[in-house]
């Protein structure tokens, strides 16, 4: 399995196993080998490579056909390797997602607490999130000042309903970002499917910790996601999310996230996500998942115009 190059250091996976018992090590390569190393290294290691002279594996093949065949094999290997690589990242992301989204269709009661840089409480908000399959979410604001506001997210499409007007409004992904914990932070609980990327390698789980995690570099596959790039660190064994750097479309670091698990020794679910704003105010936002239960809402609830039906939703 091939991993990404990063500053001349090429972490590679030496065995391909199930996500729970993957073993990783790093290998440094010279800069001259960078362009092709992602394909050549593993194949060569298995004795199937077309690198170097290629004579051991392609003996008997004429010079020109051998070059053509070598090229075709290179292309095929690149494609196969890329495909396998993407599948592995998706598998890791699905594992990580399960700690926040334990079922395809959930109702999640969420409390968002914002703290000033000196640790004093700033504000608190309550949300009910109906997180449904196929990237559909309905968020009901429950705090007194926001009561009656609703946000509907259907894939890349978003609507907002303000209680005074009872008129659902189409909003852009940028408008979804508004607020300390954006609606996207509250409602989005899946990375798999929305992001693809590569495993960068093993790195300290926290900058100052000895424990190591898998570092995934993720790129958004859709325009509507809250963050265009995510640098994600997950547990090596259970693949629980540990921390993440969240980048907006301009590739500015918007927030840094830390995931607090229910049982640190044997995590089963994310109890809290801690976000530290990096764009402006440096405030800390804690998103606590108070209650999760399986719930599938009817299709009409996810019709934007149904948002104005009141109080049927509550």
């Amino acid at each position: 399995m091939i991993l990404a190059s990063q500053n001349g250091s090429f972490p590679i996976q030496t065995t391909t196993t199930t996500p729970g018992d993957t073993h990783w090590r790093r290998r440094s390569l010279t800069s001259t080998a960078r362009s092709n190393v992602a394909v050549w290294l593993p194949l060569a290691r298995r004795g199937e490579g077309v690198g170097g002279s290629g004579e051991n594996t392609l003996a008997g093949v004429g010079a020109v056909p051998r070059k053509v065949l070598g090229f075709l094999l290179l292309v095929a290997a690149t494609l196969l390797s890329g495909e396998a690589h993407a599948q592995e990242v998706q598998s890791l992301l699905k594992d990580a997602d399960r700690y926040r989204m334990s079922a395809d269709n959930l109702q999640v009661d969420t409390q968002v607490s914002v703290f000033n840089t000196d640790g004093t409480p700033d504000k608190q908000r309550r949300y009910t999130v109906f997180a449904q399959s196929e990237r559909k979410s309905l968020v009901l604001m429950q705090s007194p000042m926001e009561k009656g506001q609703k946000v509907l997210m259907l894939g890349d499409d978003f609507w907002l309903l303000m209680p005074g007007t009872q008129r659902p409004m189409r909003i852009t992904p940028m408008q979804k970002l508004l607020g300390d914990a954006s609606t996207g932070d509250v409602a989005t609980m899946n990375w798999a499917g929305d992001y693809t990327g590569q495993v960068v390698g093993e790195e300290p789980c926290q900058p100052d910790s000895k424990a190591t995690c898998l570092h995934l570099s993720l790129q958004a596959q859709r325009k509507g996601v809250t963050y265009q790039r995510i640098e994600l660190w997950i547990g090596k064994v259970r693949h629980e999310p540990v921390r993440a750097d969240l980048f907006v479309q301009s590739d500015k670091l918007a927030k840094q996230a830390r995931f607090v698990m229910d049982k640190p020794g044997n995590p089963t679910t994310v109890a809290e996500m801690v976000l530290v704003d990096q764009l402006s105010n440096k405030k800390e936002t804690r998103i606590q998942y108070l209650n999760r239960k399986e719930r599938t809402v009817s299709a009409e609830w996810l019709n934007p115009m149904f948002l104005a039906r009141n109080p049927a939703l509550e």
Binding site: R170, K223, Q249
Partner: peptide, 8 residues
Amino acid sequence: WVANDALE
């Protein structure tokens, strides 16, 4: 029409 991430 949401034309892109920023424009409606």
